[in-house]
Amino acid sequence: MGLYQAEEYDPVFVFLKMSSNMYTGQRVQCVHGLCGEHGYCECLPCYSGPSCQHYEDKYGPRFAIMEDTVIISAKHTGVMYKATAEDEDLGLTCPLGPGLNARCPCAAVTYSLRADMDDAFDIHESSGQLSLKPGVDLRPGIHYQVDIVASNTNASMSTPVHQLSAVQTLTVVVHSDDTLHDLLSGHQMGTGMVAD
């Protein structure tokens, strides 16, 4: 959060707060901040500039686990996996804890799938929950690779410290729903036993 004495403001922004600078007598418009006692804008996290008009996103999301595996049955429905990416803006740019300053738009992560992966799978944009699309049948014994992309919006005025997206490769293993009895019966028939 930064303190800036007001100089000029950009009239394009809609949500504005007004204050008077006691030293210059100028009216101050605080776009993404609070008007301070002495006519300075106190910027909310992720914003900077004399009127708190510049969006700052210094860090991109990253996955702690770059490759993961989930095992599901061929008849699986619903959520099968939850992707989790972290953004260091939360804690470094934005304070942790309750209150107005704890809101951190520059740490918001958006999840998506690489374009060739979205025929069979679907991911919730904000929660990262991965599920099968309705009506999709997966074949037992087959492994599917899904690339999950975590990204955040960069309308930032500054150059980010890290790239603003990360990819996690998830291997979805589809196992058979055969019981142990079914598996053993199939094994015995394959050893040359002839049924009468």
Rank of each mutant, 00 (worst) to 15 (best):
Q188C: 08
C41V: 05
H38Y: 15
T110S: 14
P61R: 08
E67S: 09
E37M: 10
G128E: 07
Q163V: 14
Y144P: 06
G186N: 11
Y59M: 06
D89M: 00
H175L: 14
L16P: 10
P98C: 05
V109I: 15
K75L: 14
H124V: 02
S156G: 06
L3E: 04
L180R: 07
V136E: 00
K17D: 13
E56N: 10
C94T: 02
F63Y: 02
V161R: 11
E56Q: 12
D89F: 01
G36L: 02
G141W: 03
M22A: 09
L16F: 11
E88D: 15
I71H: 08
I148D: 03
P105H: 09
K75I: 12
S151I: 06
V173Y: 12
A64L: 15
C104M: 06
G97A: 07
I72N: 04
P105L: 09
N152G: 14
P95M: 01
Y59P: 01
P140C: 09
H162E: 09
L138F: 13
Y111S: 12
L3F: 05
I142C: 14
M193N: 15
E86W: 07
C104E: 00
V161I: 14
A102K: 01
Q145Y: 15
L130W: 04
S112Y: 11
S19P: 04
L100I: 07
I72Y: 08
E8L: 15
D196E: 15
Q26L: 03
L44P: 02
Y4Q: 06
M117T: 14
C35V: 04
C30E: 09
Y47H: 11
T93G: 01
Y144F: 05
C52H: 06
G2P: 05
H181P: 00
M157N: 10
H143A: 03
G33A: 02
I142R: 15
G78L: 10
A115W: 12
S165D: 11
K58C: 12
V161F: 11
